[in-house]
Simulated scan of single mutants.
Amino acid sequence: MVDINFLEKKATKIRMDLLTMIYEGKTGHTGGALSCTDILTTLYYGVMNVDPANLNWENRDRFILSKGHSVEGYYCILGDKGFFPKEELKTFSQFGSKFIGHPNNKVPGVEMNTGALGHGLSISVGMALAAKMDGRSYRVFTLMGDGEQAEGSVWEAAMSAAHYKLDNLTAIVDRNKLQISGSTEEVMSLDSLEDKWRSFGWEVIQVDGHDYKQLLEVLGNTPKTKGKPTLVMAYTTKGKGVSFMENVAKWHHGVPSREQMDMALSELSARLGGDCDE
């Protein structure tokens, strides 16, 4: 049984690490990285079967970060899990670094380059179909943004996944309701997203994307329906964990000032009782 307190503390530390990486790298997609930290933490510390010492293990679970611009927390988790030395993250977005602003499969643990929105689900469908054809038991998880749902390729992939009965595929939508231009409903009305996904033949489950108990229950127990892919609609808060960033569209991307960094780290450190050590 995964300790919820462990996940909460781990996610808080990951938030502190990703903010530091953005501040030192002078670039990053802050709000979206913070909104999906709890989802990524749950997957990598409580759900997925992966082995940093055996990158090519054929039965490893696959993860694709389709909303690739929110890569910072992903990199921090992979470093913390031991896929590469954490010290390498200090090169984030520097000239010649493999730690660029979108997932790069030169980084150990990253399955596929992503970032152009709308492609991650298609890649995941291919991986899940390959598992079925090869008789393998691994699962495929992909994390999409809600603004990404305006991409037509998402729905082509959704249709294919249902057609091939890919119940080894779980797609997650980070439903924070904000994108680079503002509210998702003002940019391109999406609701009811749940109804749309159901109409494409998916099993749809809604969760609080910051509630570890809910996330563990859903993500750790798929498929929900045999013969159907699973869509997890995870309702989140953009900028989660830093009070002045939460639900503020301008923090879609942006680098905090020194004063803002001190405020953010102080807030997060308080949740750890002031103890930032492992």
Rank of each mutant, 00 (worst) to 15 (best):
L166H: 09
A162T: 10
N168T: 06
A171L: 03
L121D: 08
A158D: 05
D134N: 14
V125G: 03
S122F: 04
M159Y: 02
T170K: 02
E148A: 02
S122T: 12
K132W: 00
A157C: 11
V173N: 08
A130N: 15
N168C: 03
V154I: 15
A171M: 06
L143H: 10
I172N: 09
A128K: 04
L121K: 11
K132T: 05
Q149K: 08
E151K: 12
M133E: 14
S122K: 11
A131K: 12
G126Q: 09
V125D: 03
S160P: 03
L143K: 08
V140P: 12
Q149I: 00
I123H: 13
R139E: 00
S122R: 10
A157P: 14
A158K: 07
K132R: 15
D134G: 01
V154Y: 01
K165L: 00
E148T: 09
Y164S: 04
A150P: 02
L169P: 14
A131D: 13
D167H: 06
I172T: 14
L169I: 03
G152F: 00
K132Y: 02
I172V: 14
V140N: 10
R136M: 05
G135H: 11
R139Q: 08
A161I: 05
E156I: 01
L129W: 09
V140F: 05
G147E: 01
D174P: 13
A158N: 10
L169C: 11
A161W: 07
V125Y: 04
T142D: 10
A130R: 15
G135Y: 06
L121I: 11
D174T: 08
S153Q: 15
A150H: 11
W155A: 00
G135S: 04
S153T: 15
M144S: 12
